[in-house]
Design a protein around this nucleic acid. Structure first.
Lengths: 211, 211
DNA sequence: CGAGGATCTGAGCAAAGGCTCATCTTCTCC
DNA sequence: GGAGAAGATGAGCCTTTGCTCAGATCCTCG
């Protein structure tokens, strides 16, 4: 797994060689993520980040070409974390019967978003429009994954697995994001999980080939 | 139907008396909305807005206490427009049979978002975190409206109409917003409309009292 | 130990943008 | 017609912020 300050375009900077440098980079990224999560994108100025990380701005710019690069790195780490949680919560799901599998899926999606709700939201804001490729790519990947999983289950007999996957993933994602923004505590509400379950099962049932 | 530069807190400014003033205010708001929609929140600087509106910054600040007030006014107008479109697209829906009603609903929701997709997205970004009360209030209102509509239809026999409404409204909203961001042209895809229909019908069916 | 690379420092430059104010122009209305 | 209110102007102040640079300090390793 690559680690630090690499960009695709033309934005490189020194990569840490000594462990001291690595620690510094981590401190910077974590400080930035914290500010982002607690006070939003506007508060995450490079100077503020450096201060919170306990390093000088000079040091920050030693590892990141510019503010944008820092944000992208945060996005990359966040996505990796979400992916890990998702994968973990989904292992062995193929062996389960449909209702149980759906329960698992709901739990997994919720868990994935619970990793860092505020940060997730902040990233969706700050990266939007420009380079939220990382997050987008992840979401696209999830849609593909779900699509394939749906195809595999013959019992479902969907007429358009991809479409169904798209609707489900984007719908659930939006639902959860909205809920996080407006009623964060509600994520733990079992009733909501049940409602999501109903939505998924209902959508699947209604999307059968001979519906 | 108040009109222009009124805030709740402590941010007032002259309200236009002469029609000239009203025209100026409209020009400013429209210019700002245009920039917001085309180039995003970052590009919507007060100077840029004034320039595009063909007035001086001084004039802009004659009617708006600060940039934020301007954004809020845009939000207010946008929400009003969406509300109008929604109401229009939904008239007489109570008399329709369920499948037809759902089709109408899907069309209405899509139409509502098509009013100004880019602006809608930009507002969600720029207002987020601080004062997007206006948009939030609207969304809450829509949830309430849908909840009541669901309750009315005895045929549905929902166990938790409110929950179902929440899930449907937030889910569909998120689905549409994500689609607008990633594949704007797809909003016109009839297959997507069908998929949304399936999602709604399925969710309703699966949310019955004795499910 | 000491050379040389890695790391870190922070004052401050330059750009950008929000917003003010002193002043001028246009309307309204008696 | 003209007084006074409404409307408009725009140079520029002031603050914020991204980012640079000339060095200082710390580490590694022969």
């Amino acid at each position: 797994m690559a680690t630090t300050a690499r960009k695709k375009p033309v934005k490189r900077r020194r990569s840490p060689i000594q462990s001291r440098g690595q620690a510094t980079v981590d401190a910077i990224v974590e400080a930035a993520a914290q500010i982002l999560a607690r006070k939003g994108p506007a508060a995450a100025t490079t100077n503020a980040v450096a201060a919170r990380a306990g390093v000088s701005i000079g040091t920050l710019y030693q590892y990141f070409a510019d503010r944008e690069a820092l944000l992208q790195e945060i996005g990359r780490r966040h996505v990796a974390e979400m992916q890990a949680v998702l994968a973990g919560a989904l292992t062995g799901i193929d062996g389960l019967a449909l209702p149980a599998a759906v329960d698992r899926l709901v739990a997994a999606i919720v868990a994935m978003h619970r990793v860092a709700p505020r940060l997730h939201q902040a990233l969706h804001q700050s990266l939007a429009r420009d380079h939220l490729d990382t997050i987008d790519a992840f979401e696209v990947a999830v849609e593909g994954m779900v699509s394939r999983a749906l195809e595999t289950r013959d019992e479902l007999d969907l007429s358009h697995p991809e479409l169904t996957a798209t609707v489900l993933v984007r719908g659930l994602g939006g639902l959860i994001r909205t809920t996080i923004r407006r009623e964060p505590e509600r994520l733990d509400d079992p009733a909501l999980a049940l409602a999501m379950r109903a939505m998924i099962l209902g959508t699947l049932g209604e999307s059968r080939r001979r519906a």
